[in-house]
Design a protein around this nucleic acid. Structure first.
Length: 354
DNA sequence: AAAGCGGGGTG
DNA sequence: CACCCAGCTTT
């Protein structure tokens, strides 16, 4: 029996019941696939339901404004996915007559859709014979065939993609793709895979040669860098000063409190002597520390954040427009990043009339 | 080819 | 703590 047939037999018995598996609507499948990029299924499911409800068809998505989309995306991370989805939806309306592409060649033209996602959309919505290659597939193939080539090298990616193409079931690409990903997620897991009752024990090279724990091989990335953020809570009447982050850094287009970033960690006294602080605030400014330093870990940087309340009115030199700032009464409506909204959750008392 | 981009779960 | 997750874009 072929790899594909054994795999699909396993899938029939053990596959997961996932909400996007009941449709062939390319738009709905696209929604789910973008949400699931670098995101665990359990984490993505509530967002999937939210987006389907808010934007049941692609034209609704295209009509929305970016603020609303980012707010729905809030907390999921990799926010360029949300911004690209908006561009893609508008492209479908303007260039594809509102008909969401259900082919690989059509889907891959959309921003935010790469080889994996285009293959997923095409195979799930129209059964086009394209093989998905995601983290699960890399792992299953590396172990089954005993491949020691790193999965994140150029050579490795080519090799795995080629093998994936060859062993794809061309008659049932949609089911096969679902099956290999479920197999990677449930059976051939990253740690402690369930080799004991695996259907592929006889032919799995990694199992036969005792390499399961070593595969797949992955090259290490760069180390994280440290950054130090100092956030200022500036209240005026019932409003709070918020600023929108720019492109080219983490959390693009999301809102946060106005802040100063420093190269090294800093006490409050040193911060108040810092050139940027003097540029923004009057000499008589009173700062009050809120809570302790917060460490916020991203995959590529560690952010150490301090929060201060401005204790006296008119502390801000308002003529300086260096912050892209606005006062907001209902900051609930703003799309904020995790560091800010988790701070707000813990400090609700800081916000008037909540 | 390498870097940048989030947040959360797991062992 | 390190590693990984239904990856893509930019440099």
């Amino acid at each position: 029996m072929s790899f594909a047939v054994k795999l699909m037999n396993w899938y029939r018995e053990n596959g997961r019941d996932l909400p996007w598996r009941t449709t062939h609507d390319a738009y709905i499948i696209w929604l789910s696939e973008i949400i699931l990029q670098q995101t665990r299924v359990e984490q993505g499911i509530p967002y999937f339901h939210r987006f389907v409800e808010a934007f049941p068809i692609v034209t609704k998505f295209a009509e929305a404004n970016e603020e609303d989309i980012l707010r729905l995306w809030q907390g999921l991370g990799y926010y360029s996915r949300a911004r690209n989805m908006h561009k893609a939806a508008k492209m479908v309306v303007n260039d594809f007559q509102g008909i969401f592409p259900n082919t690989y060649e059509g889907a891959i033209r959309l921003p935010g859709v790469g080889e994996y996602t285009a293959s997923a959309i095409a195979s799930f919505s129209s059964n086009e014979a394209k093989a998905v290659v995601d983290g699960n597939v890399y792992r299953v193939l590396a172990r089954y065939f005993g491949i020691k080539e790193p999965i994140n090298s150029g050579q490795g990616k080519k090799m795995f993609t080629e093998i994936a193409r060859e062993i794809l079931d061309k008659e049932n690409p949609g089911t096969y793709n679902q099956a290999i990903m479920d197999f990677g997620a449930l059976q051939c897991k990253p740690r402690n895979p369930l080799c004991g009752d695996c259907i592929f024990r006889p032919e799995c090279v990694a199992f036969q040669e005792g390499l399961v724990g070593m595969l797949p091989v992955k090259l290490k990335g760069k180390e994280s860098r440290n950054r130090y953020f100092h956030y200022f809570i500036v209240m005026e009447h019932d409003q709070m000063l918020m600023s929108k982050r720019e492109q080219g850094d983490v959390w693009a287009n999301l809102y946060e409190f106005p802040m100063i970033e420093t190269a090294d960690d800093m006490s409050m006294a040193d911060l108040m002597a810092h050139a940027d602080f003097i540029r923004y605030f009057e000499k008589d400014t009173v700062l009050k520390v809120v809570g302790k330093q917060v460490k916020h870990v991203l995959s590529h940087q560690n952010i150490y954040a301090h929060f201060y309340i401005i204790g006296n009115p008119h502390a801000l030199k308002k003529k300086k427009k260096s912050w892209n700032y606005h006062y907001y009464e209902k900051i609930d409506k703003l799309a904020k990043h995790k560091l800010i909204f988790s701070f707000l959750e813990k400090n609700e008392h800081l916000i008037s009339d909540k």
